[in-house]
């Protein structure tokens, strides 16, 4: 009796969707740039979770490779994002995402 024989695939999908939704809400309601970045990480991990579960249910390792790539991209994204954030913080002395509103019509 393996793991995938007990838990239906939808459960993982729903879990991933919930996680993604939480991350999305975080992105939408938080004004702190760092928290927004963390929420984005949450969303990426929701996708990862769904990918790994489908890898298990479809018996296909490609999904795990994609997870691997997503992790790489997440690492890059966070490092560059935080570097940009520190530069902005040096200029603005603020972590508020709404303080970055100079690009407007």
């Amino acid at each position: 009796m393996t793991w995938t024989q007990v838990i239906p695939a939808e459960w993982y999908l729903i879990l991933g969707t919930a996680l993604f939704g939480i991350g999305l809400i975080g992105v939408l309601i938080r004004r702190n740039v760092v928290i927004v970045l963390m929420s984005i990480e949450l969303m990426l991990n929701a996708i990862n979770l769904i990918l790994v579960s489908s890898s298990a249910y479809h018996a296909n390792l490609s999904a795990q490779v994609f997870v691997f790539f997503i992790m790489m991209v997440a690492a890059v994204e966070v490092s560059v994002g935080l570097a940009i954030f520190t530069v902005i913080y040096r200029r603005k002395e603020s972590t508020d995402i709404d303080a970055l509103n100079e690009l407007k019509g």
């Binding site: 999305l24 992105v27 939408l28 004004r31 995402i97 709404d98 970055l100 509103n101 100079e102 690009l103 407007k104 019509g105």
Partner: peptide
């Protein structure tokens, strides 16, 4: 009129996009 929407607030953009 429309450029009022482009207020530079990322949060607002994200909300509209979502």
């Amino acid at each position: 009129r429309l450029k009022q929407i482009q207020n530079g607030h990322i949060g607002f953009y994200l909300l509209v996009m979502t």
